[in-house]
Nucleic acid binder design. Structure first.
Lengths: 165, 165
DNA sequence: TCTGAAAGGATTTCACT
DNA sequence: AGTGAAATCCTTTCAGA
């Protein structure tokens, strides 16, 4: 099916249906062997290898990450919504946030709030410290923090090699 | 279908320093070869292979996902905060959400809101349709949607294999 | 639980279509 | 832009410590 290339504004990348199929497969299992991807799109390994290389170099594939059970790893996850002071640009806070090890993701939002941050901390005390750290920059006019109790992401439960004998 | 089927043996998992080092490496590059991981932790490949297998089976590693540039792929990402009606349990809505292809992640929150959903849609019309779909379930008392303009996640920019020319 | 070696796969390159 | 074969490299299993 032909879902269309809407982007075009900044990226000169053209994706065909095979590229999109590969992306959908890798989204669900980033460790899927090239040989298996090739079988899924009815090609041999060589062109699939080259296509993935092209997708990586062009920035369409930004990376491959393992998803870890945060509680098994003894961690706490949370989000903080941040509203910025009127004279502060999002880029200013982003620079601060990227330097903090506890920051896992930063989302710039169209509307209110201005920024959404995902934290990876050891406990609530740690969370309080990092959120206070953001407040103390003087760049924010308000924060609201959401503690994650449970989370689910598409693909994560199917991603492991299930050996069907 | 049951909602909580994964990693029941969470409490019986013990991680040593080598395990934690492997997790940190895989978080940043899920496609890193076992041989390279082995070098990084000063072991041979065999035990690293077995350790990762154990981490996968015990549910500590939940999966491996490729991170795609949504704009290059012609997509729009957004979050919706959901407040549930007083008589609705989070599990009820979760069941509905998991069936929707547009739902990428579901976070159950301690406090207000009750649930945070991450969407992957083709455009704002599509977003409006899926959010209205949630409203029409009658399970929610309020929603607030945040459209992502830009996002950054730790590790994603270093995750690609650095090749020597 | 590790090492080292060997077997079996996977990936990439290359000549050709 | 894809195929098939060959070379290289990776992963897993197994014997031994």
């Amino acid at each position: 099916m032909n879902t269309h290339d809407v982007s075009a504004e900044r990226s000169s990348v053209k994706l065909d249906d095979v590229d999109r199929a590969l992306l959908d497969l890798l989204r669900v299992n980033a460790r899927m062997p090239i040989s298996e991807l090739a079988r899924a799109v009815n090609l041999s390994s060589a062109p699939v290898s080259r296509r993935i290389d092209r997708l990586e170099r062009s920035g369409v594939i930004r990376g491959y990450v393992a998803v870890i059970d945060e509680r098994a790893a003894g961690e706490l996850h949370a989000f903080t919504e941040i509203r910025l002071n009127g004279d502060v640009e999002t880029g200013e806070l982003e620079g601060v946030l990227r330097e903090m090890d506890e920051v896992q993701s930063i989302f710039t939002i169209a509307g209110d709030p201005d920024v959404l941050v995902r934290w990876r901390v050891s406990d609530v005390d740690h969370l309080q410290r990092v959120v206070n750290g953001i407040r103390r920059t003087g760049k924010t006019s308000g924060t609201k923090t959401l503690i994650v109790m449970y989370d689910w992401t598409r693909g994560e439960q199917l991603a492991l090699p299930t050996h069907v004998d």
